[in-house]
């Protein structure tokens, strides 16, 4: 559980760490949109009609650039690549799963990359496009994970909460309790290590009473987990009651206005944190709408002079 890099804050003093969390959330969301853009171009299919199909070269270059950018961001924010790789390792299963799905059910209308192999007996063909499709999804997932890691690795959970509260502020008009939601999230975050410690202790206590969490058939294991969950529930309820008392005694009134110890400040850095992702997204959207521009600029201009 310790080497789980996704979602863990790594304290450093990098450029990205110092960005305003609100800007960081916005920037990452903008980059995520880039990740999810589709790049198509008109292709003539077997029947002689012109249809839109995935523009593989463009997809590879565009998603590849986001990949390179994500690595760059991870590097700037001092994230250890080993922990990043460890988090990505579990994606192997996803890749295999995706390959199987795409090979069995190809989604492309026009196969542009040619036949990989053919099983004459079953009248069944496998195209390279299926592999490319799986690869595209994988690249997306990886980009998404790495971008999330940049966000969570460089921002304290509490700062993220404050930023979310700031974004939820307009909802206050609709009587949405943004401050209370933020307080709830921050307390939930604060108690994760405490509850983890609790569950470890209960697990040890139950193991010493003969509960086996790791072996046996599924039914036995479920019973084992029950013996962990129920005491954990009880202890969390007791904790929450005591916490509520403590908060009340210290003058917490959810409806009252409170002042702030941590304030979010928008600095000169944040202009970059916003402009760079926004410009990139603009470019991506422009090119995804009109792929001929990409062909002209990148493929003819740079790659094929």
């Amino acid at each position: 559980m310790k080497n789980f890099a996704l979602g863990r804050y790594i304290p450093y003093n990098s450029f990205i760490h110092k960005l305003d969390p609100r800007v960081k959330i916005l920037g990452i969301v903008l980059l995520m949109v880039c990740v999810f853009l589709n790049f198509t171009h008109p292709v003539v299919n077997d029947a002689g009609e012109t249809v839109k199909a995935t523009y593989w070269t463009m997809t590879a270059i565009m998603q590849g650039s986001v990949f390179v950018l994500s690595i760059l961001l991870l590097w700037i924010s001092h994230m250890s690549f080993r922990s990043v790789l460890a988090s990505l390792r579990s994606l192997w299963f996803t890749l295999i799963f995706l390959l199987v799905i795409y090979i069995l059910v190809p989604t492309q209308t026009v196969m542009q990359l040619g036949l990989a192999w053919r099983v004459e007996a079953w009248n069944w063909s496998v195209y390279w496009d299926s592999f490319a499709d799986a690869g595209k999804i994988m690249l997306r997932l990886m980009n998404m994970l790495m971008l999330t890691m940049v966000l969570t690795g460089t921002t304290k959970p509490l700062d993220l909460t404050y930023a979310l509260e700031w974004y939820m502020a307009p909802l206050k008009v609709l009587h949405f309790p943004a401050a209370e939601v933020a307080m709830t999230i921050s307390i939930a975050l604060r108690f994760i290590p405490t509850l983890l410690e609790d569950s470890m202790r209960i697990m040890k206590a139950q193991s010493s009473r003969g509960v086996d969490f790791a072996h046996g058939n599924i039914l036995k294991r479920i019973t084992g987990v029950t013996s962990l969950i129920i005491p954990l529930f009880v202890s969390s309820f007791l904790r929450s009651e005591e916490l509520a008392n403590a908060m009340e005694c210290r003058g917490y009134d959810p409806r009252a206005k409170r002042t702030r110890y941590r304030l979010l400040k928008f600095g000169w850095r944040d202009i970059f944190g916003f402009i760079i992702p926004a410009a990139l997204l603009g470019l991506y959207i422009w090119w995804s709408v009109d792929s001929s521009v990409f062909t002209q600029f990148v493929l003819s201009g740079v790659v094929l002079p």
Binding site: G251, K257, R258, T259, L263
Partner: peptide, 10 residues
């Protein structure tokens, strides 16, 4: 936390 509840200025 207590100071925030008491509305102590930042």
């Amino acid at each position: 936390f207590g100071l925030e509840n008491r509305k102590v200025p930042h």
